[in-house]
Simulated scan of single mutants.
Amino acid sequence: MTQGTALITGASSGIGAVYAERLARRGHDLILVARDLDRLKSLANRLSGDHGVVVTPLIADLTSAADLERVVAKLREDAEISLLVNCAGIGPNGPLLGSDPNGLGKMVQLNVDVLHYLTAAAAKLFAARRRGGIINIASAVALIPERFNATYVATKAFVLALTQALSAELEPHGVRMQAVLPGFTRTEIFDRAGIDISVIPTEMMMDAGEMVDAALAGFDRGEVVTIPSLADSELWEQHERTRRDLGPHLSLKHAAARYRPRGETR
């Protein structure tokens, strides 16, 4: 007996590969989605041998509309899939002003468009089945937008907002949502972006295994948002209370007095 099937994007390396190992250890059968056939096959063989689960490689370039549809078709056809883990994504190699526009566009396509398409498809299917979960890998930079490439930050803020909004919509249907907001995590993404990892203070860099273990612990606890390095959960709760307190003031009949022409009263 397994825990159902988990479909993981970006599964051939980095955070996605760690999720694959951890979920296989928990007894999930796996569908691993990535472009690198050789790495996927190697990972699938190792995980099935080590954990006795069924691991199916699914080769797909998620920026290809045809390949993306094949992944959605798999979600639709395989009723055993009960967990979607969206790990596929790319990072920047510098500030926005020095970045190639095509590279920024590809980042938005993969980090936002593809994730949204898969999340929406899975949400509808899982809601109809009245079970399932979706884990979206966002980033801590969604909460500190001034610190990083503007396009990348915006893509991760989208992931956070999408997850929070959809969590409220899916709760009555028995479907779980989680956004994971890691900080710097030791993966291949730095090499691909041409970033020298040695310039990042060691106390800010978490190993991918520890990050995923913390994220799964948060998922087990029912967290909608998990920040793996955050020791004081009250800081997040305070942030959320402040955000909710803004709600009654965000849409009113008249502009605030501070924005009215001088001397005007209502």
Rank of each mutant, 00 (worst) to 15 (best):
E171H: 15
A66F: 01
F184I: 05
T5P: 00
V72F: 13
I144V: 14
D245M: 10
V180P: 02
D67L: 01
H249M: 00
G94Q: 08
G16M: 08
Q164C: 14
T202C: 03
L246Y: 08
P201C: 08
T2A: 11
V199Y: 04
L235R: 15
R25G: 01
R260N: 05
H249K: 06
I81T: 07
I135N: 09
R129D: 04
F219D: 11
A66I: 07
P172T: 14
T9Y: 11
L230K: 03
L235E: 15
L250D: 05
L170F: 14
I90M: 05
P182A: 03
G27C: 03
G222V: 10
T56G: 02
K124I: 06
R22F: 07
A165W: 13
H173N: 15
L30C: 04
G218K: 03
E210N: 09
D191P: 05
R147P: 00
M204P: 05
S167N: 15
T119N: 14
I189Y: 10
R26N: 08
D50L: 10
L75C: 11
A79T: 13
G98D: 12
D100P: 12
L83W: 13
F219Y: 14
R76K: 14
K253S: 09
A11C: 05
Y19H: 12
R176W: 15
L30M: 10
T265D: 12
F219A: 13
K156D: 13
P248F: 10
V175Y: 12
N45Y: 01
R129W: 00
G105W: 06
Q178D: 05
S233H: 14
G52A: 03
K74P: 06
G218I: 03
T2P: 02
T151Q: 03
R266G: 15
R131M: 10
S13V: 06
P92Y: 01
R258L: 04
E21G: 13
V71Y: 07
A168M: 14
V55D: 09
R266T: 09
K124R: 13
N45G: 04
D78C: 01
T187V: 02
V18L: 04
H116E: 15
A214R: 14
K253T: 11
G4R: 00
H173C: 13
G174E: 14
A66K: 10
G14C: 06
A79W: 00
Q238D: 15
A165F: 13
T151V: 14
H249Q: 09
R26F: 02
G209L: 03
R22I: 04
Y259I: 00
D100F: 04
S167T: 15
N93W: 07
I135S: 06
A150H: 10
G16N: 02
G10R: 01
G132F: 12
S251W: 07
T226H: 06
D220Y: 08
N86M: 06
L143W: 09
V71S: 07
F158M: 08
D61M: 00
R258A: 11
D113M: 15
A79C: 09
L246V: 03
R241I: 08
F158G: 06
Q238V: 12
F158E: 13
G222N: 09
A208F: 01
Y19N: 01
V53S: 05
T151H: 12
N45S: 07
D61Y: 05
V72P: 12
